[in-house]
Structures are given as C-alpha cells and as structure tokens.
Amino acid sequence: MTDSFVQLSLTPILIGVLASCACALPGNFLVLRRQSLMGDAISHVAFPGIVAAFLLTGTLAAWPMLIGAAGAAIVAVGLIELIRRLGNIDPGAAMGVVFTTMFAAGVLLLEQTGARNVHLDVEHALYGNLESLIWLKGTSWAALTDPEALAALPPQLGRLALVLLAVAAFTAAFWKELLIGTFDPTFAASVGARPGLVSAGLVVTVAVAAVAAFDAVGSIIVIAMFICPAASARMMTDRMGPQIGWSLVFAALAAVMGFVLAAYGPLWLGGRHSLSAAGMIAAVSGAILAGAALCGPRRKGTRAAA
C-alpha cells in the first residue's frame, strides 16, 4: 500500500493534523473561558467576510477569504462590545444577535450581487472533503525529494502550515496576556495587560483557524477540533503549559487515527467503501474525550482528593 499511501493518504493526514492543531491551540483558551461554541459562532460570522472578499477580488482564492474572515471577526467583536455598552444586554445575547445578523447579511449580500451563481456545495461546507486533498504527483516516497512533485502539493497544506505557525506565534507571543486575561480579567485590566484587546485577538485567531480548517473538515466538525482536544487535555494535567501539549497530542492523534480508520477501517472489516474522514476524526476526538473523562488523572473528583 506504500505507493498509493503517499498519493492518496499522506497529504490528507498531514492537512488533518495541521488543521486539528491550529484549532486545538486557541481551543484551550475558549474552553477555559467557557466560550466553547465561539468556534461555531465565528464560522457564521466569517461568511459575510468571505462573500465580501469574493466581491472585491472576484476570485475564490484562499488568502483573500482568510483576510475577509478575519476582518469580519474584528467587526463582530466591535459590534458585540457596542451592543453590550449601549444596550446593557448580556454578552451571550449580544453575541447571538451579532452572529446571526452577520450571517444573514452575508446571505443577502451574496444574493444581491449576482454572485449567487457561485457554486456552494452544501455537503462540502458542512463536512469538508479531506479525502479529495490528494497528491497526484506523489507517486512514491521518492516524490518527497522531487521539486516538481512537491510543487504540485495541494495548496491547503502550505496554507494550513502557515496558519498553524501564525496561531502558535500569537499564542507564544501573548502567552502571559492570554493566561492572565483568561484566569482573572479584572486583575489583567488593573496591570494594563489589555484583556479586551487579547480577547479580540483570540477571536480573530479562532476565525482564521476555522476558515483555514474549513476545506479539510467543514464548518460543523471544526467545532469538535476546537473543543475536544482542549477539554480532554484539561483532564490530564493541572497546568496550562502541559495542557497545551496534551491538546496538540490529542489533536494530532485524532486526525491520524480518524483518517486511517475512515479510509482503511471498513476494508479491514471486509467492507468496500471508506467512511467520511472528517466525521471519523470528530468521532475519534469524542472517544479520546470519553477516555480522558473516564481515566484522566485530573478529571473531576480526583482533583479534590489529590
């Protein structure tokens, strides 16, 4: 299977791992801030940004869309803050209003501008299409040293690598601010650690990770990538640094095992078809979470006694 493995499985696995890790990193902070569903909400907010980027550039190229999504996330953060301040509305309600309104604005924008002919595959949008991100020129392991073959790698691979790098750089650069602002926002404000600005930065990071991972796993399953590895990691350790490490291990594990089980699992069981890789990745994430909840050294109940 080795040759077809490189061609058909290597790049989807790598892309899955990169997407998983890019989402898991900010996911740690979302879970601790009790904003786990922010990933879901943000993928809705990103929509008008993506449409606007398409209208401005006239292409479906990935980078303008990422920038559009990030811009939309910034607008959303500003609007939520504005509504909270002006209307004295609880933050959850302010978020709900902004996210749905922006998504609706994206739908109207798409319809009003004749862009509705752009093909939007609903199934692709919901579940992603990891299996299609194959490396046609990667006919054997030797292709890894062949410049011509390397140039034909799916563009998502390089893009996700860059996004993961950016997410990791943000997390490392503002580690203290993220930690203080997540644990104790009032104290953070008192020492000038700018918790509001850091929260906004986190939302933009989540938006970029969500949109970049969109190709691989779709807009629904990406939520599992934000939440599951981080929530599982919380039950393994009582310190933030190690928690981040565990979450990355779980994210990578879920991506690899999910893809392999989806692609080859049915064959091993005598079936003929493969299963949805994105679905299997989310299922494996859920299984890891269940395992951590049952046997993690720092799950609830063990902590008080420790």
Partner: peptide, 26 residues
C-alpha cells in the same frame, strides 16, 4: 489590585506559583 476571590474560576489549570507569577507581569 486584589479582586474579590469569588471573581475567578479556581478550577483553572494553574499552580499557586503560576498565579503569584502573574504579579510580575509588568
């Protein structure tokens, strides 16, 4: 500034030393 103790989530994954280090932020 020392906020009210009840204003934070003490389940947060941090040790005692981690929290004291936050005082050295600046």
């Amino acid at each position: 500034y020392v906020p009210q103790r009840a204003s934070v989530d003490w389940e947060f994954p941090a040790t005692v030393l981690d929290v004291v280090m936050m005082g050295l932020y600046r």
